[in-house]
C-alpha cells in the first residue's frame, strides 16, 4: 500500500449525509476482476447524465455540470470533505479503489460507516473524523475560497489550514504506523503464524465439530 506522510491538496466538498458505496461506485462496475480503473466511474450516476457501463470512454459522456466533482474549481482535488455516515451501505472495497484511483488521498467527515472506514485504512486512503462544528466550518471555508487547500500531516496528526491554524485529529496508532510505512496487514499477521496454529489446535479440541467434513 502507498505510504502516507504529509499531503497537501485541493479540497472538494460533498454536502450530503449518508453517502453510500452504491453511489460512490454503482454496481455495474463491480463486475471487473481487477483493482484498477474504477476512478473514471467514481460517483458515476451523479457525475454523468447518461447511464454508465464498464469500458465507456469518459470523453464521450454527458457530464452533469451541477455535480461538485465536475466544477472546474475542484479539478485535481485530492481531499474529500463529507458529512455523517460517509461510506454506508455495501462492503464493496471498489468504493475505496474508485476514490484512490481518482486521486483522493484523504476523506474528512464527522462520521464514517465502519466497513468503509476499515477498507480505507487497508488501501492507503486516510479517513479523518473531525467534530461536526469543525467540518461545518471547513465546508464554509471551501465554498468561499477558490483553490482552498489543506495540509494533512499524519505523523503529527494535524491538519493545517491556509491561515496556518492547526486542527488535531485522532487515529488508531496501529493504523497510523501502517499508513506511514505502507505496511501490508497480511505480512504483519503472518508474523504470528505460530500463535495462530497453536490457537487453532486448542480450538479444534474444544469444538471438534467445527472441523467435521460435511455429510450429505
Amino acid at each position: 500500500m502507498e505510504k502516507f506522510a504529509k499531503h497537501h491538496g485541493i479540497v472538494v466538498p460533498l454536502d450530503r449525509h449518508n453517502v453510500d458505496t452504491d453511489a460512490i461506485i454503482p454496481k455495474q462496475f463491480l463486475k471487473s476482476i481487477k483493482r484498477t480503473g474504477f476512478g473514471q466511474h467514481l460517483f458515476d450516476e451523479w457525475r454523468y447524465h447518461d447511464h454508465g457501463e464498464p469500458g465507456m470512454d469518459p470523453a464521450t459522456r454527458r457530464k452533469n455540470p451541477d455535480f461538485v466533482l465536475n466544477h472546474p474549481r475542484y479539478e485535481g482535488a485530492s481531499i474529500l470533505l463529507g458529512r455523517h455516515n460517509f461510506g454506508c451501505g455495501s462492503s464493496r472495497e471498489h468504493a475505496v479503489w474508485a476514490l484512490t484511483d481518482h486521486g483522493i488521498r484523504v476523506v474528512i467527515a464527522p462520521s464514517f460507516a465502519e466497513i468503509f472506514f476499515h477498507n480505507c485504512h487497508k488501501n492507503g486512503l486516510l479517513p479523518i473524523v473531525l467534530d461536526e462544528e469543525i467540518v461545518e466550518r471547513l465546508f464554509n471555508e471551501v465554498m468561499e475560497n477558490h483553490g482552498y487547500r489543506l495540509l494533512v500531516d499524519l505523523p503529527s496528526q494535524k491538519i493545517i489550514l491556509p491561515n496556518d491554524e492547526e486542527i488535531e485529529f485522532e487515529i488508531d496508532p496501529f493504523r497510523k504506523h501502517c499508513h506511514i510505512h505502507g505496511l501490508d496487514d497480511i505480512g504483519l499477521t503472518l508474523e504470528h503464524a505460530a500463535e495462530i496454529s497453536a490457537f487453532e489446535e486448542k480450538h479444534r479440541q474444544a469444538a471438534p465439530w467445527l472441523y467435521d467434513t460435511p455429510h450429505q
Binding site: 462492503s91 464493496r92 472495497e93 471498489h94 475505496v96 466497513i115 476499515h118 477498507n119 487497508k122 488501501n123 488508531d172 496501529f174 496487514d185 497480511i186 504483519l188 499477521t189 503472518l190 503464524a193 495462530i196 487453532e200
Partner: peptide
C-alpha cells in the same frame, strides 16, 4: 460480519482478521 476484499484476502491467507 461483512468484510472488504482486502480482508477476504487476509482471511484466506491467515484464517484471522485484525479487529477491535
Amino acid at each position: 460480519f461483512g468484510i472488504g476484499t482486502s480482508d477476504v484476502e487476509h482471511v484466506l491467507a491467515t484464517q484471522c482478521l485484525i479487529l477491535k
